[in-house]
Design a protein around this nucleic acid. Structure first.
Lengths: 214, 214
DNA sequence: ACCTGAACACCGTTCAAGT
DNA sequence: ACCTGAACACCGTTCAAGT
């Protein structure tokens, strides 16, 4: 990758390439789409492309980071929002059901990160930051009383992000038809892990009073 | 892939190829290892290999199915075993920490299933079966009283397998060093979702008796 | 300074030719 | 019947040559 003189042109070229790549990846998947196709879609030659991206893997990394920045914004909005359970379920539903759109890319990126250690390392940092943001949102929820106080916020955040990764992966494997079932399971999960104990079932005020068995 | 006359030879050749492939995949990852390497390791020519496997993808599928049969056996042993929580945590620890061994293969397989629809379909069936086995084990645990009765066994099984997928993926990305933390998080998850409510903390016999707060 | 596109090394897979 | 290995089409990437 040669040094570039005009940062504005470089910026523009990178955008064009990323845009073209996203179209190709969405259509045919990351490994099926060839660099030549991407070049054609972007309207430049192979040599030119490699002035702006050092490798094919680096293109998905860039896309992945954009994608993750969007998710980070979503998580940030949770911190502000009222019902953290509802917010998380909505995010999960997005992740699982919006399979026709950006999601194949996310799956591809995760897959790629699994085998490319360099990509994985850059990715791990973003995951950590996302987890910390979520942990802060959860801690805030605990202070407000909308989140069960007995969970460690870091652990809870780790669990939620793990579960979302699992959802992404599973949704990619089982396809869109299983989406609602997955979203429902995720709701159960969030309720069990984050909902305050006295609000797990609809309107039980105190567990000592109505505990049914024994 | 030509028709084969001697099923015993075919079986043996397939084993040799799978064994060679596992060595290569473990050493260099699925996409980095070439068919020529695998052929060399198996001591046969490219042409011969393709008499026994229709494609490279089919080799990992075979490996994946073996791997999954082993996991199924593990799950089956849960149904028999005493403490389902402990069993699951052990499985998770295996999945996360045994990164030097078979695990890179599992990650590769998941990654591959994410983009190969044919592989994904064959894989989805196995996932479903595993989930059903686990659901039965959970239901049995509920009858025995070792699992919280208010969870739907199918939902719980789905959640556990989702979480394990997340663990596999995350472990592949963050590497072995984060393993213990992940295992600890998984324990929290299992306890929240499966442990009977009165046994969440160590050695409380009945919640009505010793429930501390209020 | 920026781009082109033929060329390079390599990939998964095939198939005519051998035994 | 089973195998070999050169050949095929294609891949991601590079680089001499252009403007």
């Amino acid at each position: 990758m040669a040094r570039l003189a005009d940062p504005a042109l470089a910026q523009r070229r990178r955008r064009e390439i990323v845009e073209a790549a996203m179209t190709c990846f969405r259509k045919r998947g990351f490994h099926q789409a060839s660099m030549h196709e991407i070049c054609a879609a972007a309207g430049i030659s192979a040599g030119a492309l490699y002035r702006y991206f050092p490798s094919k893997a680096d293109i998905i990394l860039t896309i992945a980071e954009e994608d993750q920045r969007a998710t980070e914004a979503l998580i940030e909005s949770i911190a502000a929002g009222a019902d953290i359970t509802e917010s998380l379920v909505n995010i999960a539903r997005d992740v699982v059901c919006r399979c026709g759109e950006n999601q194949p890319l996310t799956a591809d990126v995760l897959a790629e990160a699994m085998r490319d250690p360099a990509l994985a390392k850059r990715f791990a940092g973003r995951i950590l930051e996302m987890q910390e943001r979520l942990a802060r949102a959860i801690a805030a929820g605990q202070r407000r009383g909308s989140v069960e106080r007995s969970v460690d916020p870091d652990t809870a955040a780790r669990l939620v992000t793990l579960m979302i990764d699992g959802l992404v992966l599973r949704a990619a494997i089982v396809g869109a038809e299983g989406g609602e079932q997955l979203a429902a399971a995720f709701r159960t999960f969030v309720e069990r892990v984050l909902k305050p104990a006295q609000a797990t079932s609809p309107r039980r005020t105190a567990r000592l009073v109505v505990s049914p068995e024994s």
